[in-house]
């Protein structure tokens, strides 16, 4: 969907300071560009629940973080996001890779495809799906809207591989 340079440009355009992340094969391709960027810090965590918690602390301290994880990591990290977003009302933003959305060649019948959108809905996260190149602009637009309204949000990025 995004090239690495496109992705970094989009994040910089909305003033992101930190990307808190666990990679998958799509998101990981953006890491070198993230690491080379002077005005973005890539914070790698060991498990996705940590990502929401580190982002919470960054937000409290005045930074502008995003959480960058795969949808399977979203499944893992529910309690951490519940606490930060719903207990404390923090307007955190997630960019979530939607595994097997475009094709299921590497994991036929991938159940991640079944549960991702219902789980985002259950966590009451306003989500935009980016599944075609013409929708890429929606990521920055949605971030700006959520930030202006001080509410959490998610950009769900369609992926084709695990």
């Amino acid at each position: 969907m995004f090239t690495a340079d496109e992705f970094v440009t989009e994040l910089r355009s909305v003033g992101i300071t930190h990307v808190v992340s666990v990679p998958d094969s799509t998101l990981g391709e953006w890491y070198p560009a993230l690491q080379e960027s002077d005005d973005l810090s890539l914070i790698q965590v060991c498990r996705e629940g940590e990502a929401w918690a580190v982002a919470a602390g960054l937000h409290l301290g005045g930074a502008a973080p995003v959480v960058l994880i795969q949808c399977t990591g979203l499944f893992e990290s529910g309690d951490a996001l519940r606490n930060a977003i719903h207990d404390y009302g923090l307007p955190l933003f997630g960019i979530i890779g939607y595994r097997s959305y475009l094709n299921q060649s590497s994991i036929p019948g991938d159940t991640a495809r079944i549960f991702t959108e219902p789980i985002l809905s259950a966590w009451q996260l306003d989500t935009v799906l980016i599944d075609t190149p013409d929708k890429k602009v929606r990521m920055a637009e949605h971030y700006r809207t959520c930030r202006a309204e001080e509410r959490p949000g998610v950009a769900l990025i369609a992926e084709g591989r695990a």
Binding site: I43, A53, G57, L58, H59, G61, A63, N83, D87
Partner: peptide, 19 residues
């Protein structure tokens, strides 16, 4: 408190990096 158990040190890490 309330917390997500095990995440307090990660909140702290975020604050430390931001400040």
């Amino acid at each position: 408190v309330p917390s997500s158990m095990g995440q307090t040190q990660s909140w702290g890490l975020g604050v430390a990096l931001a400040q």
